[in-house]
Amino acid sequence: MSKVRVSAFSISADGYGAGIEQSLEDPLGRRGEELHGWAFETQTFRTMFGQDGGSTGIDEGYAARSMAGLGAWIMGRNMFGPVRGPWPNHDWKGWWGPNPPYHVPVFVLTHHERPPLAMEGGTVFHFVTDGIESALDQARVAAGARDIRIGGGVETVRQYLAAQAIDELHIPVSPVLLGKGEALFAGLDLAALGYRVARQEAGENAVHLTIVRGD
């Protein structure tokens, strides 16, 4: 059965899912890349970026599963790029070059209209201006029986959690203290929303939590 899931969404040991001051130089915010050090070492992510080698242990298993079985993605505008306000033009096409790693329809939450953007490898960015429910409805149609991945950033995941729309979250906890940034769970009562920790497993470079909704 199709799931709405968050996968490989790394947080620091003090609960931050992104650093402060996102920019072209720091797309994940200041020190944000440190959260994903576990993933960058895996075979899956090295292959994704045209590199050889990589780890093949527990971390790799989670990395591989994070990209498997997907039929659509949803992301916030900040994850798509650093441009704010009305689109000045359509020159910005994402952080990932001409062939992004998604290869399925991607629904980008924004307040400003923009026509769909087709990229190499089957990725098509659709810009959704009428809210998270509309984006999810469109993603369900696109994904069919495959899963929908909520890719981020932090605020997008928080909105879908508050709406109880996420079935499963894979949260790698990296051994990093950011001190400040965007706190993933601040102000959210996950237990009251029906979520529970179903599994924990120590990988080579992160502790992996699987959080599910329902029994």
Rank of each mutant, 00 (worst) to 15 (best):
1 M>E: 13
4 V>Q: 04
6 V>Y: 03
8 A>F: 09
12 S>F: 02
12 S>K: 02
16 Y>P: 05
16 Y>Q: 10
17 G>M: 06
17 G>K: 05
20 I>W: 01
23 S>M: 07
23 S>Y: 10
25 E>R: 14
28 L>G: 01
29 G>R: 04
32 G>V: 02
32 G>C: 03
34 E>N: 08
35 L>W: 01
39 A>T: 04
40 F>P: 00
46 R>N: 12
47 T>D: 15
49 F>R: 15
52 D>L: 13
53 G>V: 11
55 S>D: 12
55 S>L: 13
57 G>A: 14
62 Y>S: 04
65 R>N: 11
67 M>R: 12
70 L>P: 01
73 W>R: 06
74 I>H: 02
76 G>H: 05
80 F>S: 06
82 P>Q: 10
84 R>T: 15
85 G>D: 10
86 P>Q: 08
89 N>C: 08
90 H>I: 01
90 H>D: 15
92 W>Q: 06
96 W>M: 14
99 N>P: 04
100 P>A: 13
102 Y>C: 10
102 Y>W: 15
106 V>N: 07
108 V>F: 11
112 H>W: 15
114 R>D: 02
114 R>P: 06
115 P>Q: 06
122 G>S: 05
124 V>G: 00
125 F>N: 01
134 S>Y: 05
134 S>P: 05
136 L>T: 07
137 D>T: 14
139 A>W: 02
146 R>S: 14
148 I>G: 08
150 I>Y: 04
151 G>V: 09
151 G>A: 15
152 G>C: 10
154 V>P: 02
156 T>E: 03
158 R>P: 08
161 L>P: 05
166 I>Y: 07
167 D>P: 12
169 L>T: 08
169 L>M: 15
171 I>D: 04
171 I>P: 11
171 I>T: 10
172 P>G: 00
172 P>D: 11
173 V>H: 02
173 V>F: 04
174 S>T: 12
177 L>V: 13
179 G>F: 10
181 G>R: 00
183 A>Y: 05
184 L>R: 07
186 A>C: 00
186 A>N: 07
186 A>R: 11
187 G>K: 02
190 L>R: 02
190 L>D: 06
190 L>M: 15
190 L>S: 10
191 A>D: 13
191 A>N: 09
191 A>R: 13
193 L>H: 12
194 G>I: 11
195 Y>M: 01
199 R>I: 05
200 Q>V: 13
204 E>I: 01
206 A>G: 12
207 V>R: 07
207 V>M: 13
210 T>C: 03
213 R>K: 15
